[in-house]
């Protein structure tokens, strides 16, 4: 049976992965590997580690696809949540302190690495950028420090000299605003496939 996996929903891909279809896993990688890699690389500025995370996340999808529950969100958000958790663990580990300092120093130089995008991708990325720009500064800053820099909300509160309660509310409200803005637009999510 030859299947054109590019026409198959993410949920169906996972079912096929459950039946040991390696070509289905390859398609999942084609769709989402870039995002997983970009996230890991952005959080820990270490190409080798980012690749390890991608590998780990996709091998886990291969060995335990039943852990993905399509009722609880898209495949991409599941893969990214796995990758983010793994990356943050690494960032917070004692051995990574040095890495974090180096990364902070490198931040400016690396700011524009994600330049190769197709036209559609560019439109989405621009829209995401717009939505982020529309967020109140406090919300955007709290989310970015937590999500990309790996700080806990308590650490963010200290960094910004703001009460902890304010920071956790800003993170929650900011994510809600983003979701409302982005998901209600025509942009949609090409990777959702279901």
């Amino acid at each position: 049976m030859t299947t054109d996996w590019s026409q198959v929903s993410d949920a169906a891909l996972v079912v096929a992965i459950g039946r040991w279809r390696e070509d289905a896993l390859a398609e999942a990688y084609r769709r989402h590997g870039g995002a997983v890699y970009a996230l890991a690389r952005r959080v820990v500025r270490d190409t080798g580690f980012a690749e390890e995370v991608v590998q780990e996340v996709f091998v886990r999808l291969w060995t335990t696809p039943d852990r993905f529950d399509p009722d609880r969100g898209s495949l991409r958000s599941w893969l990214l949540a796995q990758a983010h958790g793994r990356t943050i663990d690494r960032l917070r580990s004692e051995s990574a302190r040095r890495l974090r300092e180096e990364r902070d120093a490198q931040r400016t130089a690396d700011a524009g690495y994600d330049v190769e995008r197709e036209a559609w991708d560019l439109a989405v990325a621009d829209r995401v950028k717009d939505v982020m720009a529309d967020l109140p500064d406090g919300e955007r800053q709290a989310i970015e420090l937590a999500y990309f820099d790996g700080y806990t909300y308590r650490e963010v509160a200290k960094l910004l000299d703001t009460p902890e309660g304010t920071i956790k509310s800003r993170i929650r409200a900011g994510l809600k605003h983003m979701r409302a803005d982005l998901i209600d637009t025509e942009t949609g999510q090409p990777w959702h496939h279901s």
């Binding site: 991608v54 958000s77 949540a81 994600d114 190769e116 939505v131 989310i143 990309f148």
Partner: peptide
């Protein structure tokens, strides 16, 4: 799940692995 979907968009770069 909704927050994670929103965070998913933050990660969007369009770059391939």
């Amino acid at each position: 799940a909704e927050h994670r979907e929103a965070a998913t968009l933050l990660s969007f770069t369009g770059a391939a692995a």
